[in-house]
Amino acid sequence: MSEIQATKGRALSTFAELFFDNPMMDEAKRETRRMMRTSATFGRGGLAVTLGIIVIVYLWLLVQTVLTHEDGTPFFIYVELALVTLAMPGSIYAAISGEREKSTWDALVLTRLTPAQIVAGKLVWRLRLLIAIAVIMLIPVVLCRIGAHRYLASETGVIVSQVMIGLWGIMLSSFGLWVSSITKRSIATLSIIAVTITALLLGLPVLYQMFASMNQAYPQAYRSQGTEDPVFNLMMSVNPFTVLGEMLGFGSMGYNNSGPWRDPSGTTACVVFAALTPMFIIASYRRLTKLGEPGIN
């Protein structure tokens, strides 16, 4: 096994191999075609109607943004966050487990592709998706900034929100890739990701409040007027939905801004997301390296 360890260095790739001559980047083309084909199974008419409705609603929102002179920024950014939260895990959950499920993984392993190329290929087109969502949702935001009579959200808030959503999306992708690499079935991957995100955003805060109220340890934790509980505050500070509310002028979402580890600026969230992303990427890389060795499959 020592010789196998010695050859691990080849798992690394040059920049060109990662981003310019990486066949794994072709996955975007396949996935787009698959999406179109799957949609077409509902009938070309159905697909056209669905896309038509989405486009009409989007255009109507753009027109309303211009005509009403109201600042719809918080609404559009919330929609952007919701789309990113759904689209990133939804697009990446089958990245590795799907390959293993379809028996295409062995063929990949036997090529000269490195784990780094696979990780890069799997992540990069999801990042393109992230950028596409941001661009689509930022068009009405820009219109709002130009035409609104009064602003609900500050420009700093908008910029920080974009950074936070971007980091959140990248973290979700890398987390999804890692979970996909440690599971053998796509449905298991999707379940783990869905449960984790739901727990992080909703389940844990609710359960924590219930637990705290039952024990009366932090009676203020379940009150709508704020809390001094550092754990609960930290949970709220890394929840992009609650942070976004405060950042964009929706208010404190029922909680005050005081207390230790309470950070409505989004800095804590950004730092946590930025720190977790490389951890998940490295974990995915290590797992793929392991999967490429004999004996695991």
Partner: peptide, 22 residues
Amino acid sequence: YPLEVRPLLGYMPDFFGLYDDI
């Protein structure tokens, strides 16, 4: 030396998977 051996062989499994939409 599995990494050195892999370029020398072509393997077709009994149950093989192919990418769709390509």
